Amino acid sequence: MELSYDPRHNIAYLRLRATAAEVETLRVSDEMNIDIAPDGTIYGIELLNANTQLSGDQGRLVLVDKESGKRQEMRLPAA
């Protein structure tokens, strides 16, 4: 899994699978698209206006491993 962020366009992409030859993009809302792989699984999730959507914790993206309890934080650009 990989989370990438493009500050120039303010887009985040959460890729859940390593590869997909082609994907079908479903527009969920004005700020979210979901890419579906040919086998019907979710390949990735695109967040438009990402800094607003991901900055719910005082401007930080917080990743938490629920099993180990390990937390990792990353600052996001201001909305």
Score class of each variant (00 low, 15 high):
20 A>H: 07
64 V>E: 05
16 L>W: 06
2 E>G: 08
34 I>N: 11
33 N>C: 06
70 K>T: 12
17 R>N: 13
12 A>L: 06
15 R>C: 13
55 S>R: 01
31 E>A: 07
59 G>W: 03
9 H>F: 08
45 I>K: 10
71 R>L: 11
52 T>Y: 03
68 S>C: 05
64 V>R: 07
72 Q>N: 07
37 A>V: 12
17 R>G: 04
31 E>G: 05
44 G>K: 09
5 Y>M: 02
34 I>G: 06
19 T>E: 15
40 G>V: 15
66 K>W: 08
16 L>R: 11
22 E>S: 14
57 D>W: 04
70 K>C: 06
54 L>I: 01
29 S>R: 03
18 A>S: 13
45 I>G: 07
25 T>F: 05
57 D>E: 13
38 P>K: 11
9 H>S: 10
25 T>L: 11
58 Q>L: 05
38 P>L: 08
42 I>Q: 07
65 D>K: 04
21 A>S: 15
5 Y>H: 03
34 I>W: 04
74 M>G: 08
17 R>V: 03
21 A>L: 13
77 P>S: 00
55 S>C: 01
9 H>L: 14
11 I>T: 13
26 L>V: 12
12 A>V: 01
1 M>I: 11
55 S>G: 06
21 A>F: 10
4 S>I: 02
62 V>M: 01
59 G>A: 00
22 E>M: 14
24 E>T: 14
21 A>G: 15
34 I>D: 13
35 D>G: 07
60 R>G: 02
23 V>T: 15
38 P>F: 03
27 R>T: 15
26 L>N: 10
27 R>A: 06
12 A>C: 03
63 L>M: 12
11 I>L: 08
63 L>E: 13
66 K>Y: 06
78 A>V: 01
76 L>S: 01
70 K>M: 11
23 V>P: 09
45 I>N: 14
27 R>H: 11
49 N>G: 09
65 D>Q: 09
39 D>N: 15
27 R>K: 14
12 A>D: 04
32 M>K: 06
